[in-house]
Design a protein around this nucleic acid. Structure first.
Lengths: 210, 210
DNA sequence: GTCTATAATTAGATAGAC
DNA sequence: GTCTATCTAATTATAGAC
């Protein structure tokens, strides 16, 4: 039985088109069920492709996962206003606030990245090691460096530098990563007014009032 | 081939003993891989039991999951100092700080509950609906009520009441739920000194300085 | 590049011997 | 209550026709 929608079979739509659809479907599947709980057949069905096309366009489920994560990170970087930029004391406060707002906006619009990494961060493994080595470490160091500047200028709240990264990501993104739970509580996390209030809240949690 | 450790076969150890071992093994498996990524056979092997014993002692994988979550919640409640107690303005600040410290200590000692719920909260489903209906709603309402008291007394930081629950859980627990990631960054989240500093940080994020 | 067919493995659940 | 065996269904990956 064919995997794609029944009726007439798929015609060649071009490699790039199929890759795109597979990545988009994979992002949703991996975010909802985690890597191990995800099924290549479900991903292919969502993408209106065949299960074996995953192994053709990507060499394995693992590679599809990496391609999905890198797609999401590219979108995040497009959202953030140069978070790795060197800043002096005068700019640090505004840079931090803008970064936090960017993180919150992105988490609300694209909760899949935080969902995927909350799944992966729960246990050691090759995917987590790859992600930390190629993506997290640089971002972590940049944030801690910025935090040290804010501590020196007296702008930082009393948050430990070793814990600031995870505290910030957690405060900024769990609301959206676990939006299905919030919705069952009668809250709508992704309304723009709610996003704005939440972003302001997170900034207030980490920066001392001027 | 037998599932338990090879060699001599298991002898009757008593129903309660087997249930205990299965729950403990299930907690670790569900936390690491999520419900859908978890295997009953792996759980049984860890518990030195047979896969079919899961269906005997619990009627399904789903019921084993619920038993595991309720075990963890019982441990959490033993840790928290009556978080649902009514408090007047004078006590609210101390109650909140004690609750936060309890949440942080528990997340550090037993990251499995937060891991399991971060997996489940990523997508709608029967397990999430059950959890919210039977456990989350009451706790959420109690926290928001306490928060309203703190807002009225001027002790609360500028954090929105609709977002305070997830912001707090995120800030307090992601550090431990994703401890494998933190460890790859060279941080040891579960050292007692680190836990204490993190707990103090979270309190400082949510309460205005006195 | 797409699609079918299939290999090899594993999943959860159940029936029945002991 | 334990354990073996088995059923049905689903998994990823691969080989080969088109």
């Amino acid at each position: 039985m064919a995997t794609p929608s029944a009726g007439r079979s798929r015609v060649n739509r071009g490699s790039e088109h199929v890759r795109e659809r597979l990545i988009e479907a994979a992002i949703g599947e991996f975010a909802a069920h985690g890597f191990e709980g995800s099924s290549g057949r479900r991903i292919a069905t969502t993408a209106e492709a065949h299960q074996s096309q995953i192994n053709y366009h990507f060499s394995s489920k693992d590679d599809l996962w990496k391609a999905s994560v890198e797609r999401l990170l590219a979108e995040l970087d497009a959202q953030l206003v140069d978070p790795l930029a060197e800043v002096d004391g005068a700019d640090a406060r505004a840079t931090f606030a803008a970064t936090v707002r960017g993180l919150v906006e992105f988490a609300a619009r694209r909760p899949e990245l935080n969902r995927i990494m909350m799944h992966e961060g729960a246990a050691p493994g090759d995917r987590l090691a790859w992600f930390v080595d190629t993506h997290t470490r640089t971002r972590h160091e940049a944030l801690v460096a910025l935090w040290d500047v804010l501590v020196a200028s007296g702008d930082a709240a009393a948050v430990d530098r070793d814990a600031v990264y995870h505290s910030l990501i957690g405060a900024a993104s769990l609301f959206y990563a676990n939006a299905p739970e919030a919705e069952l509580l009668g809250i709508e996390p992704t309304r723009q007014a709610m996003i704005d209030r939440h972003a302001a809240s997170v900034v207030a949690m980490f920066l001392n009032p001027r």
